[in-house]
Design a protein around this nucleic acid. Structure first.
Lengths: 222, 222
DNA sequence: CGGCGGATCAATCAAATGGTTGACTCTGGA
DNA sequence: TCCAGAGTCAACCATTTGATTGATCCGCCG
């Protein structure tokens, strides 16, 4: 909290509607104020710069992960963390998939909340993050716990690479050619992948991997 | 417009933040008022019932398609259209995939707008829909135009539906069960789909369909 | 050093998928 | 009315994929 007892928030979301909602919601809370808004990561960095120059840096950045255009939330978070005396970044997003959460945490976010959280919970999260605390949505917390307890379940880089080719619609033979290995090798990898993802065919593997954001859906932007 | 010169809107969205945003945004417009809010399709129908009983039905329903729990937007739209003297339903959603657009139009929506639309555009859309007009996002309009001009090239609603199940990783047999048809029928559809998309296997079909935004990548929910 | 896990390959068999042809019904439009 | 297109189903066969087992090579770590 600042000396004035007000937590100043920088909103980053590409949807005008969502920004309006957060603005209305947060402004209605005691002790929280909107410092500025941005519609993508690049703009957020600019705003941060501007506010710092004015000697009024925000106490917390409320950041969406999915951004239609411009710099995405993960990149923006990482960039912000590179600054000197960076403000805590609280992720507020729609999805709670493994890779989203992992990517956010790795980028240096201090919290991960979902947009469907009730207002009061959101308020608490903002205050906690601003105070230097960590705040995680239940799923996010569970995922991180699971990661440290049994790390053997995650895919190897090679397997991820295979999944990416798989998702483009290539056959085993085509994948084998691309990777300069035999078709047998591709099959072996696939079996391992199926086991780790808990599926039993390639389309399900793509679906699962996409869902967990292990891979990016073809033609995805943001 | 009503005799009072006010367009009364029923908001349907499962996210408190989005509802707050729409509320703030619409309430700020001249001639638009919020009649009621609902967090899912079922609740929307109830609200509609209640308002009608009061003799104050809304002039337009602003509906999200993706709803985390409860009745989804497409079903709700279809249900609303079954009522006597149903209000126009304006879809306001995050995605502009063929599948979403087609489903909404088939359900009887009078408009399809995206959440990232600028406020002024949203205002216009609400007024137009309330006045009995049709309002479409650019991509939605283009899709429908394409539909009528060359119906042979584009996928049929049934084929799109199949693609969606395909993308979730289901086998032909599983898809057949879901759709209450035989496996042979599924195969026939798939062959047609492959032909139209210019591919020769299911994973490539998923990739192509995702890329062309015919379907939403698996795992993209509310 | 010894072992473990990742990556590679082979062979085999069962199952699923893909390709083809032909046919029936129904609906909407020329 | 007649036809085109959508949706449905069947039978058949070639190809691909999945499952299993077992093996070699290599780099890293205790």
């Amino acid at each position: 909290m600042t000396s004035a007892g007000e937590v100043r928030v920088l909103l980053v979301d590409d949807h005008p509607v969502v920004r309006a909602g957060l603005r209305a919601m947060l402004a209605g809370f005691e002790g929280i104020a909107i410092a500025a808004e941005a519609s993508d990561g690049r703009a957020a960095l600019k705003e941060l710069d501007r506010l710092s120059a004015l000697g009024e840096p925000p106490d917390v950045v409320l950041m969406d992960l999915q951004m239609g255009e411009g710099m995405d939330g993960v990149t923006a978070t990482a960039e912000i963390r590179k600054l000197s005396a960076p403000p805590p970044v609280l992720i507020l997003t729609t999805y709670d998939t493994d890779a989203d959460i992992l990517a956010a945490v790795e980028a240096g976010a201090s919290g991960y909340m979902l947009k469907d959280a009730p207002p009061e919970q959101l308020r608490q999260a903002v205050l906690q993050a601003a105070a230097g605390g960590t705040v995680l949505a239940p799923r996010a917390a569970a995922l991180l716990m699971d990661r440290v307890s049994n790390p053997g379940t995650s895919l190897t880089p090679r397997e991820v690479q295979l999944l990416e080719l798989l998702a483009t619609g290539l056959s085993n033979r085509a994948i084998a050619k691309q990777l300069f290995v035999s078709e047998a090798t591709v099959k072996t990898h696939l079996v391992h992948i199926y086991g780790k993802l808990g599926v039993d065919n390639r389309t399900a593997a793509i679906a699962a991997a996409t869902q967990r954001r292990i891979i990016r859906p073809p033609g995805a932007n943001g």
